[in-house]
Amino acid sequence: MSDKQFKLTVVSPDKNLLVDIPVSAVGARGTEGDFTAMPGHIPFLTDLKPGELWYRTNEGAHKMVSVSGGFIEVLPQKVTVLADSCELPGEIDEERANRAKQRAEIKIKRAHELAAKGLLTTSDEAELRRAEIKLNRAMARLKFIDKYRSRR
């Protein structure tokens, strides 16, 4: 084994998607921007935005995983992703993501209408924020599917 590789673990509450997979690079979208981690990276912790996470296997294949938020911990020998939820490209339910997107859009629109009339209560506001997060997630999933298709 060369020292040019490390282990990747991707887990979510209901799934252990990848456990200690040897990889040579991992890339993700953190709150402070995209980054790529290579073996020997300094210890690093950040939270993830909904979107894609990619990694390169030892054979050089480029693989992708969709994550919807969470945390990523990078250590010199190991990368651990604690995702809210995570999916392989084949696993995403496009229809469901579409439906979630529509639902969120309707809610956001309604909230904006209320806001225009000055009737927005705090609970509405909380709901608006939740809807925005949901929209974000759905969009990230859909974008991920698109990207994966075009790459193939």
Binding site: G30, T31, E32, I42, P43, F44, L45, T46
Partner: peptide
Amino acid sequence: SQNYTIEP
């Protein structure tokens, strides 16, 4: 501490 970088 091992240079744990944390963002944000």
